[in-house]
Design a protein around this nucleic acid. Structure first.
Length: 221
DNA sequence: GCGACAG
DNA sequence: ATCTTGTCGC
């Protein structure tokens, strides 16, 4: 469906190496997202079935303007570094069914803070052409703890490069790991995450999407 | 060779 | 990701 979908981990790695150069680290001129989409997947343990959800929020009010949840399956096993190949197909299906095109994708996982600089957020961004950012709960890289205040951050390093930031979204709460996905810069990415994570550790986009696919799994599977 | 390793 | 009880705090 998408360009030659990989059948093996080796092919998946090769695809990432070919696509990584397509990441655009610059935001569109005058970029000021009015809507942001949260994406997440919930798995049915023991089977390969899942539900993928996308929720679009108005950035100013945090009110939902559209949402989609679809059932799906996954071929790939979970392999660190190849996580995107588990969720990408189903997430793309959900995105296609939106009635609005979000200005920004907020993904559950890494963007360029990845061994080959091409995590889920970058992959989704490049394939859709939409600006995207990665927000992970666990880092792929090293960092020194940022200060305790909301908004404090420290660089996330991998192989001697700054690939993202450890960003504290709530006082005294474990930081999130933000990296650019596609067509955004790191400052903008962090500013958006802080705006969306006004009350909890995770951005409201992620929380909404998480609830949507989890509820679908609980009731309809 | 061994450890690390998003969800 | 998912399995789980109690517990601390506003």
């Amino acid at each position: 469906m998408i360009e030659q979908w990989p059948a093996t981990p080796d092919e998946a790695v090769a695809l990432q190496l070919r696509m990584a150069p397509l990441v655009d680290p610059h935001p569109p001129a005058g970029f000021a997202p009015r809507t942001a989409a949260g994406l997440d997947v919930a798995y049915d343990e023991g089977s390969d079935r899942l539900f993928a959800a996308v929720v679009v929020l108005d950035v100013a009010s945090l009110d939902p303007v559209d949402q989609v949840v679809v059932p799906g399956v996954t071929d790939f096993p979970y392999v660190p570094g190849l996580f995107a190949f588990r969720e990408l197909p189903s997430l793309l299906t959900a995105l296609e069914r939106l009635t609005v095109s979000p200005d920004l994708l907020v993904c559950d996982g890494q963007g360029v803070a990845h061994p080959r600089r091409f995590g889920l957020a970058s992959h989704l961004g490049v394939v859709t052409g939409l600006p995207s950012i990665g927000v992970a709960k666990t880092p792929m890289g090293h960092y020194d703890p940022p200060g305790p205040e909301r908004g404090a951050w420290s660089p996330l390093l991998d192989d001697g490069e700054v690939v993202g930031r450890a960003l504290r979204t709530q006082r005294e709460v474990k930081p999130l790991f933000v990296s650019i996905g596609h067509r955004v810069d790191l400052d903008t990415a962090c500013a958006q995450v802080l705006r969306l994570a006004s009350r909890y550790r995770q951005p409201e986009t992620t929380r909404r999407a998480d609830r949507l696919c989890r509820d679908a799994l609980t009731s309809g599977a």
